[in-house]
Design a protein around this nucleic acid. Structure first.
Lengths: 230, 230
DNA sequence: AGGGCTTAGTGCATTAATTCACAAAGTTAA
DNA sequence: TTAACTTTGTGAATTAATGCACTAAGCCCT
């Protein structure tokens, strides 16, 4: 009733904002100043009305007859998503994937510097990978405090993932990106997003098989939307 | 009308089947023979009615008063998802992420062997990574044919991703898993799933910021559901 | 063989997401 | 100033997904 009701943006729209942001960055890089909902829709592969509705959750930042300004809207999306600051990340699990992610510049470039990597294997602790030394998962509490870490990324084996999550929770982390193909058990106040690469392939497999069975004249492929957690 | 109407399973349900499958594998590994929709729901973190409805799309494979049989249902889900066979995978882009994925046993163990990896950089072509030699992206057509590849995984830079996709399409690939933060332009008959790690973190950032602004008494975190493609 | 208990399957109400379609607001040009 | 044109913002219709709550089935115990 009061305007205290924090903007409540539908989940589906939130999942699309980062994609719009990505496209706006590309537009800015090519010196585009303005765009219409039609143009953004074409680039994002979605319906123009959806784009307008999504953007309208941020406020009324377009100009009728003209469109939206790239820089201004970029700013608004970043504000909404909490991207006006950096969020430090710790990777738990210094295997292939963990080390690759620690080096991965897609994290840093989007404002999520990986400032620490830890493992529970004494053989790995102390090794250096891309300017980070692998720490001990038992020191996580201190590391999180000292490095002001907000987000934990789990790249351990399935077997170790729940323990990794528990360590993160114990260290006060409330946002987790989980690569282990396991449904983590966490308090509902914690945000967990799962990226299960096997799941992605299995979904592709379903559509691939459909094409096979229906002799290629399949329905269209799945839609853009985004994936979840908890 | 005729029973020709190929089973039409809702997208949201398809995205959950791999997760159920994962859990069933764990149950089998611990010698559990049967389970109820309640139990599976608890393990998957979803509503029991949803589990029953999802499973009912496969057919009527439960027994009232008893539950579902682990092995039988596993079989049915695999059949439905097209997992009765293996699907060969090629990784395009032999950078950090690409090489990590080529080694990643989560692919092989779920029935998606990485049988080839290619790049366009002469410096990388010819190198060996985990028993695979990096091939030339220009040979993709032959490689796909010879190795009977069904799925392409794009781990190039953003700039190179569309060219990678075009090469895959040209080689006859109809299922793509794209790690580049770019909306690929592809015919609608092709299945594309995007895994944008930056997007995942940005979504977490939103909820993290919400917690910040509302003083921690935030709404619950996002739901389980899965992510998509063009 | 019958009653009580458990659990799948599903119709239906509810909620969420998408899309349509149009009025409101702005631009441009004569 | 006015008319023609563009494009946003949004109410309303539509479609999809979710979850309740009940019925139908099967098991187990006495």
């Amino acid at each position: 009733m009061t305007q205290l009701q924090r903007r409540k943006i539908p989940d589906a729209a939130i999942a699309r904002l980062p994609i719009y942001l990505q496209i706006l960055n590309n537009l800015a890089a090519t010196n585009v100043l303005r765009f219409s909902s039609d143009e953004l829709a074409a680039l994002a592969g979605v319906n123009a009305a959806k784009v307008r509705k999504d953007l309208s959750y941020l406020g009324s930042y377009g100009t009728r007859g003209v469109g939206y300004e790239v820089t201004y809207l970029t700013h608004q999306i970043k504000r909404e998503l909490g991207l006006m600051r950096e969020w430090n990340v710790v990777v738990v699990g210094a295997g292939n994937l963990g080390c690759a992610l620690a080096k991965f510049d897609g994290f840093l470039s989007r404002g999520f510097p990986v400032v620490a990597i830890v493992d529970n294997d004494p053989k790995k602790i102390g090794r250096t990978t891309s300017s980070l030394t692998v720490g001990d998962v038992n020191d996580l509490k201190n590391i999180v405090r000292d490095e002001k870490i907000s987000i934990g990324v789990i790249t351990t084996s399935s077997a170790a993932s729940q323990a990794a999550a528990d360590s993160l929770l114990d260290a006060g982390i409330t946002s987790i990106l989980n690569f282990a193909p396991v449904v983590l058990s966490t308090p509902s106040s914690v945000s967990v997003r799962n990226v299960d690469l096997g799941v992605e392939l299995q979904i592709l497999s379903y559509f691939e098989q459909m094409r096979f069975e229906t002799g290629g004249k399949s329905e269209n492929a799945p839609q853009l939307n985004t994936a979840g957690a908890r």
